[in-house]
Computed example of a mutant assay.
Amino acid sequence: MPSSYPVARIRAAERQALAEGRRLMPLAGAAAAAFVARRIAPGAVVLALAGPGNNGGDALEAATRLRKLGLDLRVVLPAGAQGLPEDAARAFAGWIAAGGTVTAAPEPGLVPDLVIDGLFGIGLNRPLGPGWQALVDTVNGWHVPVLALDVPSGIDADTGALLGRPILARWTLSFIARARGLEVPAAAHAAGELHLDTLGVAMPGEVGEA
């Protein structure tokens, strides 16, 4: 069984699961929240970076769950909530309903204990724009643990190419299957420890978990 896959195959598995009526984003958010909860002390400050796509929705789902566990969650949503995909918009509504708030940038002077990188995931295929790059540079300058969801922002998930200066993660938690770009040395350096949660989804043509 391959250890990593092209993005197109991961997307196909995701589409199939969604067509079967499975809601994957809450599962991804729960997996990310559990990952963080095992590695952070009570009362810690966690900053979730939520991008404009479904990767941002995963981060919002995780933030909602961690907030309910009593952690101090901050959410940065640089592109705002307008235009979020349906599932991500639902995750955003859940975050707000839980009493959460969002800002467009990190609060001045804030240095969190841990960052969840949900900016772009496997969807990025162009260089980071100046604003996104500035945010990534700020996060890297904190030198705090980062959990990247799927792939660190600033990495092409298919080729492993650096699309700017990527977020430097301590851990990367992939969902469904690992993107093949994470095997490229430069991308692997940015990704840190690699972890996988299949969310119970089998890759096309395979039986059981990927």
Rank of each mutant, 00 (worst) to 15 (best):
A169D: 06
G131N: 12
N140R: 14
F120M: 15
A134G: 15
I155W: 00
D117F: 14
P152M: 02
W142D: 07
G118P: 09
D158W: 05
G129C: 10
H143I: 11
I167F: 06
W171G: 14
L168I: 14
A177D: 14
N125A: 13
I155T: 00
P112L: 11
S153D: 11
N125C: 04
T159V: 11
A161I: 06
L119P: 02
G141E: 10
L163W: 08
R165P: 09
T172D: 02
L149Q: 05
A157T: 03
G160W: 09
R126V: 12
L110S: 14
D113P: 11
P145G: 04
V111Q: 13
L149C: 04
I176T: 09
G123E: 10
L149P: 10
A161G: 09
T138I: 07
L128C: 05
G121H: 00
F175C: 04
R178A: 13
S153E: 08
I167S: 06
R170T: 11
D150R: 06
G154A: 03
I176W: 06
D137H: 02
R170N: 15
E107H: 09
W171H: 13
I116W: 07
G121K: 00
N125Q: 14
W142G: 08
L163F: 06
F175I: 05
R178Q: 13
Q133D: 07
A179G: 04
V136A: 00
F175A: 01
D150A: 12
F120N: 14
V146C: 03
G109Q: 14
P145A: 02
T172A: 04
A157I: 01
I176A: 04
T172P: 06
L128V: 00
V146S: 09
F120S: 14
L119M: 10
R178N: 11
F175G: 00
A179K: 13
G118Q: 01
P145S: 07
R165K: 10
P166L: 02
L163T: 01
L128W: 01
R170A: 11
R178G: 09
N140Q: 12
T172Y: 10
L128D: 04
Q133G: 08
L128Y: 07
L119R: 01
G160M: 06
V144H: 01
I167A: 13
P108A: 10
P130I: 10
D117A: 04
L114V: 10
D150V: 12
A157G: 04
V115T: 06
F175T: 02
V115W: 07
S174L: 05
G141H: 07
L162F: 15
G118W: 08
T138Y: 09
P130R: 13
V136H: 00
A157F: 05
I155P: 00
A134Q: 14
T159W: 13
T172C: 02
V139E: 03
P106I: 12
D156L: 01
R170E: 15
L147M: 08
V139H: 01
P152H: 01
P127D: 09
G164Y: 06
W171N: 09
A169M: 04
G164L: 02
A134C: 10
V111R: 15
A177M: 12
N140S: 11
A105V: 11
V146Y: 07
T159A: 03
